[in-house]
C-alpha cells in the first residue's frame, strides 16, 4: 500500500450511476438490442453491477423488470483461477445461468475492476465449460491497467491510471452501504 497517501474518491455515486447508464446503452448499441444478450456478473462486486446494468437495459428496451432473471446471471470463477494454490482457500459462490443457457448468446462478463486480467481468463474458462456463446464481451467499472494477459474490456466505466502499489476499492450500496470508487 502507498504509505502516507490519502484515500481519494475517484468516482462518486453519481459518477458510477452515469457510467453504468452509458455502458448499458453501449451494450445495446453494439449488440443492436438486448435480444441475445446475457449479463454474467463475476462475484463479488460484479454481481450487483450486472443487476444494475440489466435493470437499465430493460428500462431502455421497455421490457418489464420481471425479465431480469432471463437477462442477468452470475458466474463463479474460483475453481478456474490460476492462483488457487498460492492463496488461502476461497469460499465458492453460486453460479446461476439464466434458463436459456449460453448457446449462441452474446455473453457480457461484468466485473468491478480490470487489473491483471487473470480473473477474466478464469471466467472465459468457466463460460466455455457451461456452453458455447456466439461472442463474449467484457464490461468493467474501472480499468486500472497493468494487464498480465492479452485481455481488454469492451465497455469501461473509467480508465484509471494507477501504480501497482495503489489500491482500488469499489464500494457498492448493495454490499457496502455506499457507492464510491476509492483510490488509496
Amino acid at each position: 500500500m502507498n504509505s502516507g497517501a490519502q484515500p481519494t474518491v475517484v468516482l462518486s455515486g453519481d459518477d458510477i450511476h452515469r457510467a453504468l447508464t452509458r455502458i448499458a446503452h453501449e451494450i445495446l448499441e453494439r449488440n443492436k438490442g438486448a435480444a441475445d444478450v446475457l449479463l454474467l456478473g463475476i462475484p463479488t462486486r460484479g454481481v450487483p453491477l450486472a443487476a444494475r446494468l440489466g435493470t437499465r437495459i430493460l428500462a431502455a428496451e421497455g421490457r418489464p423488470d420481471s425479465d431480469l432473471d432471463q437477462l442477468v446471471g452470475t458466474i463463479d470463477v474460483t475453481m478456474y483461477r490460476d492462483d488457487l494454490r498460492r492463496n488461502p482457500t476461497r469460499a465458492l459462490e453460486p453460479t446461476r445461468i439464466p434458463a436459456s443457457g449460453l448457446q449462441e448468446k452474446v455473453v457480457v462478463l461484468v466485473d468491478d475492476v480490470l487489473y491483471s486480467g487473470r480473473t477474466v481468463r478464469a471466467a472465459l474458462d468457466a463460460v466455455s465449460e457451461i456452453g458455447r456463446p456466439r461472442a463474449v464481451q467484457l464490461a468493467v467499472l474501472v480499468d486500472r491497467g497493468h494487464r498480465e494477459l492479452p485481455i481488454r474490456a469492451d465497455f469501461i466505466g473509467k480508465n484509471l491510471p494507477t501504480s501497482r502499489e495503489e489500491r482500488v476499492s469499489v464500494q457498492l450500496t448493495e454490499l457496502d452501504g455506499t457507492d464510491a470508487v476509492v483510490l488509496s
Binding site: 475453481m79 478456474y80 488457487l84 465449460e129
Partner: peptide, 19 residues
C-alpha cells in the same frame, strides 16, 4: 455450503472442474 455449490455444478454437461 461448498458441497451445495459443488452439487450445482454436477448437473452441467461438463461435470469436471479444474480446481
Amino acid at each position: 455450503d461448498t458441497a451445495a455449490t459443488m452439487a450445482a455444478t454436477q448437473s452441467r454437461e461438463i461435470k469436471k472442474l479444474p480446481a
